[in-house]
């Protein structure tokens, strides 16, 4: 698997580390139920998945990669900010 880093170009996946689902957002409140959803619950789709990858052995940028979990095909990679 190769990830097209916006800074470094297409790089081997072993240069990156994986955090997980990029669609969850930290709650604005301190509501426990909202935090439970944020920390624990995931859609876990079989198909396109927006996810965080960190280019640890490269530019050290956080990326949001859109990847199909059924095929590992990567459709896009953009800076997380």
């Amino acid at each position: 698997m190769r990830i097209p880093c916006p800074y470094c170009g297409e790089r081997d996946a072993r240069e990156f580390s994986y955090l997980g689902d990029a669609s969850v957002a930290r709650p604005a409140t301190d509501d426990a139920a909202a935090y439970h959803e944020y920390v624990n619950l995931r859609a876990n789709p079989a198909g396109p998945h927006r996810e965080f990858w960190y280019h640890a052995s490269g530019c050290r940028s956080w990326l949001v990669v859109t990847r199909d979990t059924r095929t590992h095909r990567i459709d896009s990679a953009e800076l997380a900010r």
Binding site: S17, Y18, D21, A46, E51, R70, H72
Partner: peptide, 8 residues
């Protein structure tokens, strides 16, 4: 495990 979400 490989470490990323996958159904492949």
């Amino acid at each position: 495990i490989d470490g990323y979400n996958s159904y492949a």
